[in-house]
């Protein structure tokens, strides 16, 4: 049974709160200022800079991470809301040298060009495949509709998700 979320602590100006959560499978205790978003805590307090910021207004999807397996926009979520939760970022997809099948497929098919949208797209696609091991094209399009990519035109991304799904079967 997953640990129960801790109730949010009242923000105290200048002081930090301490929170326990699971990040990429490992328990982490982190102290941060209570107004910080999950995105800021991941990047600034946990040094996980793989998760990107493109707008910090919930409009681009670059900051997507998984919280308890579901994609969320980490720029819109207060880190305080994540007590006890399990957070997965792009850094948590590979097992050491072994890339996730999605990462392999992205590499083969050129689905990451500048790579800036890629972390958010990878984790969002991971959640899709965990829920639907054989997604249809419309399911992929819909799942990724909140993740903007200016480089690829999306087609290679769809193909990579499909290839990863095929290989997993």
């Amino acid at each position: 049974m997953p640990p129960q979320p801790q109730p949010p602590q009242p923000p105290t100006a200048g002081s930090k709160v301490v929170l326990t959560l699971t990040v990429n499978g490992e328990a982490a205790e982190v102290a941060f200022e209570p107004h910080k978003t999950l995105l800021e805590v991941l990047r600034e307090d946990l040094a996980l800079t793989g998760t990107k910021h493109g707008c910090e207004l919930g409009e681009c999807g670059a900051c997507a991470v998984l919280v308890d397996g579901k994609p969320v926009l980490s720029c819109l979520m207060l880190a305080l809301e994540c007590g006890g939760a399990s957070v997965t970022t792009v850094e948590g997809l590979a097992r050491g040298a072994q890339l996730d099948p999605l990462q392999d497929a992205f590499a083969d098919l050129g689905a990451a060009q500048c790579g800036y949208c890629t972390p958010g797209i990878l984790v969002t696609a991971r959640a899709l495949l965990d829920q639907h091991p054989a997604p249809t094209r419309p399911q992929i399009e819909e799942a990724l509709a909140g993740n903007l990519c200016r480089c690829t035109g999306y087609l290679s991304i769809y193909q990579a998700v499909e290839q990863a799904a095929r290989k997993a079967r």
């Binding site: 990107k52 850094e91 997809l93 890339l99 992205f106 590499a107 083969d108 990451a112 890629t118």
Partner: peptide
């Protein structure tokens, strides 16, 4: 040939360092 892309690995692992990182 579509040889493996050099830049891909770090970008896919979230290890590529952009200015914000």
């Amino acid at each position: 040939r579509s040889v493996p892309r050099r830049e891909a690995d770090a970008k896919l692992r979230g290890q590529a360092r952009y200015v914000g990182d």
